[in-house]
């Protein structure tokens, strides 16, 4: 599956890409995936799973889910 790294979160992608490829076979905590990918949870303001905004601490993702994460943005 792929996770969309919104706004400037692609800063943390090794190749600065906006889609992070993730290999999962069963439901996994999103926080765990992001931490292992080197994306600081403190930089994430909004988690969207299948077009619904969710709380990071509660999110388990499955291979078929569409996941987007965004940092705090504003001003300008």
């Amino acid at each position: 599956m792929k996770i969309y790294l919104g706004a400037h979160l692609n800063f943390y992608h090794p190749e600065k890409k906006s889609w992070l490829n993730v290999e999962i076979q069963q439901p996994v905590a999103l926080a765990e995936i992001l931490e292992s990918a080197g994306i600081p949870l403190g930089e994430i303001h909004m988690v969207v799973v299948n077009n619904e905004i969710e709380e990071m601490s509660e999110v388990m993702i499955s291979p078929q889910d569409e996941v987007k994460i965004f940092p705090p943005v504003g001003g300008g």
């Binding site: 919104g6 706004a7 400037h8 979160l9 692609n10 800063f11 943390y12 600065k16 930089e43 909004m46 969207v48 905004i53 987007k68 965004f70 940092p71 943005v73 504003g74 300008g76």
Partner: peptide, 22 residues
Amino acid sequence: NPQAWGLQNTGTPGLVEPLNTA
């Protein structure tokens, strides 16, 4: 720095999608 790099990468038009999602 992610904030500054993000401004360089997308400039302010990068705000469109995250603000819409929110």
